[in-house]
């Protein structure tokens, strides 16, 4: 039961709202009463040292992790909870499945299905989750794979694709479900430097999309600065500082932000 949390956020709600969200692993508090709003079509990058809870934010939103306290809202509706008798109770699986369709995720290690071709990976969920016809799923998947520059690789299995190509398939696969929100979890961290550009180019091309809200955890500071509407700097389970890219990178107010940025930018 949740008191003091609204059952929904009304019509002008942000696309995502974290409201006093707390996440603990045993004794360790990973996120401490986090408040974060992401507006529709906004691109928000989350940066910060490892262990600061930034990946956990994405995983909670994807409902891969349960939260210990607070409420997450998506598109005005509660995600982690559901209304019953004018109160919010913990969401059941049916509610989660309904809400989860709003959200897609691209993983650090791609997580493609190894026994399916690039095309098969993209067609899987539209056909077997949305119930789309094979013809329609095929057309959509071909379009998306062409958009990510893999028109000539659609019949290849993941094992025959490079890391950059696999990650582009993974982006097409997530897009095939047309989520309202797309999460990128360190999507270039497992890639060789020479193929990072091709993946970033695909994400860049999505940035102009009018029906996609993006939330990304990244170590690519230059890219984050270029593409984001807003940067959140996480430190020890809290947002230590947030603001427009220019402000964060050129004129950080928080001492931790300054230290982190100088360490990261020196290393590059």
């Amino acid at each position: 039961m949740k008191e003091n949390f609204p059952l929904n956020l009304g019509s002008d709600a942000p696309m995502v709202r974290f409201s006093k969200v707390t996440k603990c692993y045993g004794e360790l508090t990973v996120l401490d009463s986090l408040d974060l709003d992401v507006q529709q079509n906004e691109i928000v990058s989350i940066i910060g040292p490892s262990g600061s809870g930034k990946t956990t934010v994405l995983r909670m939103l994807m409902t891969l992790e349960e939260i210990n306290d607070g409420v997450i809202y998506v598109d005005g509706q509660p995600l982690t909870h559901m209304p019953k008798n004018n109160e919010l109770i913990k969401a059941n699986e049916a509610h989660l499945r309904k809400m989860r369709n709003n959200i897609g995720m691209v993983f650090q290690h791609f997580n493609l299905f190894p026994h399916m071709t690039a095309l098969g990976n993209c067609m899987e969920a539209p056909m077997h989750v949305l119930g789309m016809s094979r013809t329609e799923a095929l057309a959509r998947s071909e379009e998306l794979l062409e958009m990510v520059g893999l028109a000539d690789k659609i019949h290849e299995h993941p094992a025959r694709l490079s890391g950059g190509q696999q990650q582009r398939v993974a982006i097409a696969r997530a897009l095939a479900m047309r989520p309202k929100i797309l999460l990128f979890d360190e999507v270039t961290s497992a890639l060789d430097p020479e193929v990072i550009g091709e993946v970033l180019n695909v994400i860049r091309s999505l940035a102009s999309e009018h029906s996609l809200t993006m939330l990304m955890v990244t170590h690519q500071m230059g890219f984050a600065r270029e593409i984001s509407d807003r940067i959140c700097f996480f430190y020890e389970g809290k947002i230590a500082e947030e603001g427009a890219p220019q402000q964060i990178f050129e004129n950080p107010q928080n001492e931790r932000t300054r230290q982190f940025l100088s360490a990261v930018l020196d290393a590059n």
Partner: peptide, 19 residues
């Protein structure tokens, strides 16, 4: 190549409701 992502988007919401 430019594809009409918003058409896909609308179609998905439609299917979602049904499924």
């Amino acid at each position: 190549m430019q594809i009409d992502l918003s058409a896909q988007y609308r179609r998905t919401r439609e299917l979602e409701k049904k499924s």
